[in-house]
């Protein structure tokens, strides 16, 4: 089946980047995620789909320990990034989040200049030795986020003054500035118009050359357009995980079929 896909970007996507085993999440008494096993591949866009409250965002937030910030949240199970347990006591969550970047649903630029938005991460992680190096990281990141040409003449202007689509691409530039290995995106296009959405989707495909991208989306068509692998969550369970083509043409679980075809599941 794969050899029929003529337009796929040629990258080596054999290696497992993140391996999750038996992941359970409780918010107080609520059992939000039940025994999830997933292998997320390197250089691959993986889409998480499912109805609201199914646990997909919760699982995404486990991958860079964003759930640590919620006091009632309890995560058990095993999540390994390149074989290393990310919940190990010796792992610094701040360092982890530099490796596993995140882009949120609503563009949330810092109330700072465009330049400082992108330079913030490299500065706190000490990734640049001098101003010239920092300038280069900012330019490269903005180029990767397909924003450079639109903002190169006003880098000192506030990031919050950009349009919604530009702000979201600025947030992507900020996320890639620390050279992460994995980029998590939680509904990155839900606040964007179709043109900005298409630009972000094109960007996601380009980012795949360097990172492993995991995207949570409510748009099934978006999952179908941008991802190579799709995971369907329902009521806290990972129901089905497979090649996007297979999930959208021949899902094996009736619950997946009900959801993607727009039936009451």
């Amino acid at each position: 089946m794969n050899d029929m896909r003529l337009t796929e970007r040629a990258v080596n996507a054999e290696r497992t980047k993140i391996a999750a085993r038996g992941v359970q999440v409780h918010y107080g008494q609520t059992h939000a995620l039940k025994d999830v096993d997933v292998d997320i591949l390197d250089h691959t866009v993986t889409a998480f789909i499912g109805p609201s409250g199914c646990g997909k965002s919760t699982f995404l937030r486990c991958l860079n320990r964003m759930n640590d910030t919620i006091s009632v949240c309890r995560v058990t199970g095993d999540i390994r990034l390149d074989g290393e347990d990310i919940y190990d006591r010796r792992i610094d969550p701040v360092q982890l989040r530099a490796k596993v970047g995140m882009v949120f649903q609503k563009p949330n630029p810092f109330p700072k200049s465009i330049y400082d938005n992108v330079a913030y991460g490299p500065r706190i992680h000490g990734l640049a030795r001098n101003k010239a190096e920092l300038d280069e990281i900012v330019e490269t990141s903005l180029r990767r986020a397909a924003l450079w040409n639109e903002v190169k003449d006003r880098l000192a202007a506030p990031g919050t003054g950009l349009s919604g689509g530009q702000q979201q691409r600025l947030c992507i530039a900020r996320a890639v500035a620390t050279s992460p290995e994995v980029l998590l995106m939680d509904e990155p296009c839900s606040a964007l118009d179709p043109i900005a959405t298409a630009q972000v989707e094109e960007l996601i495909d380009e980012l795949r050359a360097n990172f492993s991208v995991v995207i949570v989306t409510h748009s099934m068509q978006q999952a179908a357009r941008v991802s190579q692998r799709t995971a369907f969550f329902h009521l806290g369970h990972l129901v089905e995980y497979g090649d996007t083509t297979q999930i959208f043409t021949k899902p094996s679980d009736p619950r997946t079929e009900s959801y993607i075809t727009g039936r009451i599941g």
């Binding site: 099934m220 959208f248 043409t249 021949k250 997946t256 079929e257 993607i260 075809t261």
Partner: peptide, 9 residues
């Protein structure tokens, strides 16, 4: 309608 799965078939 962008049909998928059984609908597409």
């Amino acid at each position: 309608r962008a049909p998928t799965a059984g609908d597409l078939r």
